[in-house]
Write a protein that binds this DNA or RNA. Structure first.
Lengths: 263, 263
DNA sequence: GGCTGTGAAAGGCTTCACAGCT
DNA sequence: AGCTGTGAAGCCTTTCACAGCC
């Protein structure tokens, strides 16, 4: 998907398809929930429903990992949790640095889903000297000057970029030079990295734009046969009122991963 | 992709492939940057580089929209900006509500990329009465009780869920009942929605897990032939540490991967 | 009888390579 | 000469459907 330059060499080793890898975390989450409720086994049908996929796909996915189920019975929940965790590399601890402690960076630092899955926030880094020393999510923010030192002394190989777009490439370069080989990029910009470095991108506004595309289709369709109730006239009606507020928003202080790109 | 229940009817109307739709925002961003620098035309090669895709794919993508280029010359930047904006539905204004004003919700409210692309934050909604009235990103937070009223009076059709996982489905149901037909879900849970409602999911921890998977592969590979320059030593170093951790894990009780996290 | 694991078929996406326009 | 637009080929992903095991 969002692999920076990496010329995908057809998923090496035991060749688990990329699409399958992307779904393993989904299965893992569903299994974890079952595990907490002490459910001992689960069928492909049930697990698929819990993960929001169809059962054929799930079985095919699992078949790439090995034969971990029992015919006529289903899958052992605990065993599968372990196998998937191991496959994803979550049985080891991954120190992670977050660069750019604005609103988003702070949100990420506080995000429980990291710590609970083998990821450990090793450091929070920000370019603003005023931030240095301030605790966010219980961790003191460090200045960008420390970046290389932090990466090296903690053996960090995964970096999260939550800076404004303008700073992202520069931060990325420094992370990579210091030894980071996987980057999760929240800044709305395309990062260039050397071969061997993975980049994944999360772009908040892109997701909304995709929704808008489909929303527009719905509105234009009129009587969509599939019968969602009354949503149509809505879009047009609102357009006018929008104008005023849009102008007001413009001056808003964009503390973090901000504009750099008006449209 | 993350379309909730929606039985994809093979992308209706003029049938733009889903994969293409997902890239249009990328092209749009690159084009916007060119437009700001007053670049009049651009070739598929240049634009592709700026957007981080290859040129054949870009040309194919554009061919679904129509023939907007000029052979021997390239694409007119302004014209393309307009065409893509229109195709994505960004020439109209989309009022959006954000539900769940924790760290993440606040980050989203402050995110410049929304306002700049036809999205307008119509309201911020939170269940905590103590939040009510507080301004976030210049907008007063409103209590969940107001949800239906807000949706209806603003004609909101797109909702963003940034609540804890436990509250997400309930919020989703209320949004849908009030008339929302597109949902962007940041809560780490699978949402169930009626036909005709689109759901897209952004999951912060899933992206990291996918990176961890590839990172693990790199570490295990040793001399990856593809020859990333300075990056190698680290992989080796990490591999060693990994081994130890893995071994330790092997026998340990993998009780692990706990909660379904907060916001 | 029930459910997994998997070949085979179908569908979608990407890449190739070149005809065709300017 | 240069660059777009696009059939055709190749690859990847999903779905089907059923043999095989419990």
């Amino acid at each position: 998907m969002a692999t920076g330059r990496t010329h995908r060499p057809a998923t090496r080793s035991r060749g688990i398809p990329e699409a399958t890898v992307a779904r393993l975390p989904l299965y893992l989450r569903a299994l974890t929930a079952l595990s907490e409720r002490s459910v001992p086994t689960v069928s492909s049908e049930e697990l698929a429903a819990a993960a929001g996929v169809n059962s054929a796909k799930l079985r095919k996915d699992f078949s790439y990992l090995g034969s971990y189920g029992t015919r006529g019975v289903g899958y052992d929940v605990e065993y599968l949790v372990y196998q998937i965790s191991r496959e994803l590399g979550l049985t080891q601890d991954w120190p992670v640095v977050i660069v750019g402690i604005g609103n988003l960076g702070a949100a990420l630092a506080n995000y429980g889903g990291f710590a609970s899955r083998g990821f450990r926030v090793a450091a929070l880094i920000d370019a603003d000297p005023a931030m240095a020393g301030k605790p966010v999510a219980g961790i003191a923010v460090q200045h960008t000057d420390e970046l290389e030192h932090i990466i090296e002394s903690n053996g960090v190989s995964i970096g999260v970029i939550a800076t404004p777009a303008g700073a992202a490439q520069q931060v990325c370069d420094r992370l990579v030079a210091a030894g980071v080989t996987s980057i999760l990029n929240f800044a709305p910009t395309v990062l260039t990295v050397p071969d061997g470095v993975d980049v994944r991108k999360v772009d908040l506004s892109i997701e909304l734009q995709i929704l808008a595309f489909h929303e527009q289709r719905k509105a234009g369709e009129e009587t969509p046969e599939g019968g969602a109730p009354a949503t149509s006239g809505r879009a047009a009606a609102v357009a006018a009122a929008a104008e005023a507020a849009a102008a007001a928003d413009r001056k808003g202080p964009d503390g973090d991963v901000p504009a750099v790109m008006p449209a």
